[in-house]
């Protein structure tokens, strides 16, 4: 080998070694941009890391959720018990036992009531709807999403609607074998085709960072008032027609612009929801 070639190679190696962090950072930036572009175009067919990570996280998340429920229950117990400070120790202990028991029974009763409502609600929906529990929330402030404990192995697929007896929660955006990620209707990148129940005016309900949940693309000429209920139009092929999406809390016409600015309270809050139904798009249309 010519000494000059060996020297070049050595200097190149030295350059790579000296700037390895910088170069690998640039590589990761380019890789993430490639993944982003492929995902945005829908070309990212196989993601080997995501399902593995979700598979690993699922049991821990279920455990954490149980701990949170226990913590909330204890918090409720503490709040309930704080009124009995003046009583003696024996009675306090007795009451504590009874309160814990009562909370357990109330929780069981509430769960029973919720499941009964869900079952009743399910009878109005396609038979292949899947009952699922929320096992995790979004790890980022920028995305409004949650994780379900059911996935493709249970019949949950991408694009399916997620509802509760109270109304619409969101849409499944990705699935693994045993989990599903739901984009909530409060996320700025979500969109649900709705009708104003009173006037049948159409619009899109979506999240926004500045006004919370909003109803978009409603013409200035349309009559929308505070308290108007918004229901699914059924046109998007995701949700059955007539499910409650939210209620108008403020509607105003700005000086400029074609559309009204309408703020909405969602019918379902993910933070207060435990069980949901996942609805199949096509069959939900057939049932209608």
């Amino acid at each position: 080998m010519h000494p000059a070639v060996g020297g070049d190679r050595a200097s190149m190696l030295a350059f790579f070694r000296k700037n390895q962090v910088l170069l690998s950072s640039c590589f990761c930036l380019l890789l993430s941009l490639y993944i982003l572009t492929a995902a945005a175009r829908g070309q990212l067919r196989r993601d080997p890391v995501g399902p593995l990570l979700l598979w690993l996280l699922r049991p821990v998340e279920i455990g954490a959720q149980i701990t949170i429920d226990w913590f909330k229950e204890m918090q409720n117990s503490y709040t309930t018990l704080s009124g009995f400070r003046g009583e003696n120790e024996r009675l306090r202990n007795r009451i504590q036992q009874l309160e814990v028991e009562r909370n357990r029974l109330l929780e069981a009763e509430a769960t029973n009531r919720r499941l009964q409502q869900l079952l009743e609600f399910r009878s109005h929906l396609p038979s292949d709807s899947v009952t699922a529990s929320i096992i995790g929330n979004s790890a980022s402030s920028w995305f409004q999403s949650c994780l379900l404990d059911k996935g493709s192995a249970d019949g949950v697929n991408k694009g399916m609607g997620v509802v509760t007896p109270l109304g619409v929660l969101g849409q499944v955006v990705s699935v693994t074998g045993r989990t599903a990620k739901v984009l909530l209707l409060t996320d700025p990148s979500s969109g649900i085709d709705v009708l104003v129940q009173r006037t049948r005016a159409r619009g899109i309900v979506s999240g926004s960072l500045d006004y919370g949940t909003i109803l978009k693309y409603v013409k200035r000429s349309e009559d929308v008032q505070e308290g108007d209920r918004l229901i699914t139009s059924g046109i998007d092929g995701v949700f059955p027609k007539g499910l409650l999406v939210g209620t108008v809390i403020k509607a105003r016409k700005q000086q400029l612009g074609l559309f009204q600015l309408i703020e909405v309270t969602p019918a379902v809050l993910a933070s207060r929801t435990e069980e949901v139904l996942v609805v199949h798009p096509e069959t939900s249309q057939e049932k209608n």
Binding site: Q20, V21, S24, S25, C28, L29, L31, S32, L33, Y34, I35, L36, T37, A38, A39, A40, L44, D47, V49, G50, L53, L54, L57, G136, S138, A139, S140, W142, F143, S145, L147, V173, K181, L183, D187, S189
Partner: peptide, 28 residues
């Protein structure tokens, strides 16, 4: 270090897997 770069990328990617609508946004 190179491990740290990959770690930061993978943590961002993990946030994407559990939260984002499309993959790669937090990794970037």
């Amino acid at each position: 270090s190179v491990g740290a770069v990959l770690g930061a990328f993978m943590l961002g990617y993990s946030v994407d897997v559990v939260s984002s609508k499309i993959l790669g946004i937090n990794a970037f």
